[in-house]
Design a binder for these strands. Structure first.
Lengths: 348, 348
DNA sequence: CTGAAAGCGCTTACAG
DNA sequence: CTGAAAGCGCTTACAG
């Protein structure tokens, strides 16, 4: 294993100075075309690559972005939210397209965050990706801001929090779903998913549902609800708890709006285990349009968030921040995906 | 945004030399305890962090690992194999535990691989994670080896390929499943999944199945097969093609061994759409034990690969390689997970 | 235990 | 268009 070539080796072989090698390899117009080509050929033969540590140190930036994934602490590793995975994939892609590298780290919100990368000049900027409220972490966010760290947050814009955020409009998502459900003739609803300030996404979806109900002159006070984090198992349990709230099956809701597809799948399993059929006896819908939702039985009616676009926006806006351009909060509009679990094939 | 503090700033404030600051911060025993504490306190107040670029440049290593994920080119981003996701999570965790950072990149096997990180000193070693054969990439692997790049490959050990690999024993996995299926009384089998040299994992699973059949004196020549990559959609189509191979339903196999859980889920959907019930009419089993397999209808009998352990082994062995220790190929033993889709609740 | 100094491999003013 | 030189912020022999 021979030690790696440096720009001095190339310079020596090409009979030029090291500065010229550096310029040639970075395609500086300052260097003679013929010289440039000669240098590049030698570099290739030696399999020379610019040392990023040296280059970054000198240029004072790292040409890499860091992604901090905050998973619900109750989840174990195997249960990474599929929605995050799509985001991970699209962020990775967008980062590479922009010529940056990506450092990935799964963080616990309660962790020390020592590895914030930007502190150590390992990354030029941070993307924070997690469900839930950032309320508990305001101090950390303020600290980031104070240090001049460039970061972007996935989630609902919230003027109370430091930093810029890009998110999907959950209220509209819930509203679109509510409208559809109402148009199908459903009148009594239940909501499965945490509905508290710690889960602003879910809360927004519920709010949208209620708005659609109000517009259809339905009474929103009777919407039953049971807490669930975004897992299949939590959805299963929440559905069981929900059912116990009703004294008799005749009181059951027409439709259950689940705050995520994973919850919806657990809900359907719970209903089935009680002998109920979806959507014949009761409609169940989800949110996220995760990969398997279309293959569920029945295929899930859900709300799609454009993760591809989201990843691109996150990356391009972080890059803007790094270039010291101003960036505004953004809210993306989600889209309804109608399949079978809402009962639309049966009731209209 | 004030510019970041350097070790010289700390030194100035502490009234010591910069060397001492550097030593104190790296917990060198050479520095006086009281001095060390004073320096550390100042560093914390200034929110000082060692510049990794400078440190890495000086120490000639980056304290980071790179993960190159090779996805089946036919898949789009949203369809990342769930098995890979578990591996990603466990590798991330193991890397962090070892005090390293992780660079992640989704690569197309056909790409140029310019970002190999190790070339550019951005990473100390590489983990290659992908399904399928490395045959087409032997040249690139040799090149890696030639350059002295430390890398480890997930997959079946293959003496023909350069580098060390860590993998799961697919032949044993298939064998365990085959044994179980045979013990349940199934006699005629089909296999869903690519069975060619380009898919050594799948091939190994099929081989294991056939070994179990042979041991039970079943004729292995009659095992029907249809190609499928590891997606639900491919499983669906493959199952349809498979069924067309039989002239009448009475010829149908007793059990279909799918090369992955995703394929199995597609297969079940296809059978169901033809009016067949799983496992009453036909048993279907998968491989991987992905998250949703336990929630499928029916819950999937499958083979579990310990991704947590796999991630840890990949990281710890790569670290050994980096320390110039010798590392041997490893094969992990998979485990049978019996649920309902094999018909075990019904036939025994 | 501490400090002065060299040097990791680049990029980029500065001078020609 | 090219080269000599400075310097990015560290770590670590070397000398005391």
């Amino acid at each position: 294993m021979k030690s790696k070539a440096t720009s001095f080796d190339i310079a020596h072989m090409a009979g030029v100075s090291q500065s010229t090698v550096s310029r040639a390899l970075s395609d500086s117009p300052l260097v003679n075309q013929e010289t440039r080509e000669r240098i590049k050929k030698i570099a290739q033969e030696l399999n020379y690559k610019v040392d990023k540590n040296a280059s970054n140190l000198r240029r004072q930036h790292s040409q890499t972005l860091a992604l901090l994934l905050f998973e619900d602490p109750t989840n174990d590793d195997s249960l990474i939210n599929p929605f995050f995975i799509s985001m991970l994939a699209s962020i990775t892609k967008a980062t590479a397209t922009a010529g940056y590298d990506l450092l990935v780290s799964f963080q616990n919100m309660n962790d020390d965050w020592h590895n914030l990368y930007e502190d150590t000049n390992k990354a030029d900027g941070l993307i924070l990706l997690g469900y839930g409220s950032y309320t508990d972490y305001e101090y950390k966010l303020s600290q980031l801001e104070e240090q001049g760290t460039r970061f972007l947050r996935w989630g609902a814009p919230d003027k109370k929090h430091p930093g810029v955020s890009i998110g999907s409009d959950n209220e509209i998502g819930g509203y679109l779903m509510g409208q559809h459900l109402v148009s199908l003739g459903h009148k009594r609803f239940a909501f499965l998913g945490e509905a508290n300030v710690g889960a602003p996404e879910f809360l927004g979806r519920l709010r949208g549902l209620k708005r659609a109900m109000s517009e259809a002159s339905l009474d929103t006070t009777g919407v039953a609800q049971a807490d669930a984090i975004s897992t299949e198992a939590a959805g299963f349990e929440a559905a069981q708890r929900l059912m116990q709230q009703y004294s008799s099956p005749s009181d059951f809701p027409d439709a259950i709006f689940c705050a995520s597809d994973l919850i919806a799948m657990g809900c359907i399993r719970a209903l089935r285990s009680q002998g109920m059929n979806v959507p014949e006896d009761i409609a169940v819908v989800g949110y996220d349009n995760i990969q398997i939702s279309q293959f569920a039985t029945p295929p899930l009616t859900t709300v799609l968030q454009d993760t591809l676009l989201a990843g691109e926006l996150l990356v391009s806006n972080l890059l803007k921040l790094i270039r010291n351009e101003t960036v505004e909060d953004m809210l993306m509009k989600p889209q309804l995906v109608v399949r079978e679990s809402c009962g639309c094939k049966l009731k209209p």
